[in-house]
Design a protein around this nucleic acid. Structure first.
Length: 228
DNA sequence: CTACCGATCCCCT
DNA sequence: GGGGATCGGTAGA
């Protein structure tokens, strides 16, 4: 698929884009590190959720166009990264035409390349998010991450952000340009076929009965990285 | 200015 | 099944 074809996907209705994001790739490659080693990380998107603001009471755009929600009013294919609970960064892809604040939350990816880099980034994020941390506690966290199987390292929206080193500085950047360090690539030709499951979104009980049951969560059936 | 709470995750019981 | 960590967004005084 050409870059133009991939961009055209993001002109489609948000729920259609959400399904097309399953199986697509989240890529981060910062070039050779200080020792000349690789920095490439790739994850297969296994779980997404659609947020159709401003009417959607679960969307950050439910308050209208504010400083926080403004990125969602921009053009499709850009990033919107927010901080939840003071410690986790969550990645969204903006959809809809300018002025329509739709977005798709990347809830889980299956690590394909750079597992050790992803594990190291998880540790780094966890250590940095704590005000104080003894060496024994740091060692306990490191040991837990060593035991964590690769497919569970990025099995949740906060974990995707941690494992790929994402933060709010990514907001507004073009995710569809393959020359960018952080970007999305279409599902590779020849990738394994899969079925899509549709369900209610997670963690939005506050939105009220009209919105909690909307079937706007999409997952790859049987994928080991889907959140629990 | 203060109060409240969140598109989360981990650990304990 | 329940609570803590941690901070920014929003509403209301």
């Amino acid at each position: 698929m050409t870059e133009a074809d991939w961009r055209a996907v993001f002109e489609r209705p948000t729920l259609a884009v959400a399904e097309r994001l399953l199986g697509a790739l989240l890529v981060r490659d910062d070039g050779p590190d200080s020792a000349g080693g690789p920095t490439r990380r790739v994850g297969r998107i296994a779980e997404v959720e659609a947020y159709l603001g401003p009417d959607d009471r679960a969307s950050h755009a439910r308050f209208g166009e504010t400083a926080r929600s403004r990125p969602m009013y921009g053009e499709a294919g850009r990033a919107y990264v927010y901080l939840v609970y003071g410690m986790y960064h969550c990645l969204n892809v903006v959809t809809g035409p300018p002025g329509v604040p739709h977005a798709i939350l990347i809830r889980a990816v299956e690590p394909l390349v750079g597992v050790d880099l992803i594990r190291a980034a998880r540790l780094d994020a966890e250590v940095r998010s704590r005000r104080s941390l003894g060496s024994a506690e740091r060692e306990r966290i490191r040991a837990r991450l060593e035991r964590t199987p690769a497919e569970r390292l990025t099995a949740g929206p906060g974990l995707v952000g941690a494992g790929f080193g994402l933060d709010r500085s990514l907001t507004g950047r073009d995710l569809l340009d393959p020359a960018q360090a952080i970007h999305l690539e279409p599902k590779p030709v020849g990738a394994p076929r899969f079925e899509i499951a549709v369900s209610a979104r997670i963690g939005i009980g506050f939105a009220g009965p009209d919105w909690v049951d909307r079937p706007w969560r999409f997952t790859i059936v049987g994928n080991p990285s889907v959140s629990r």
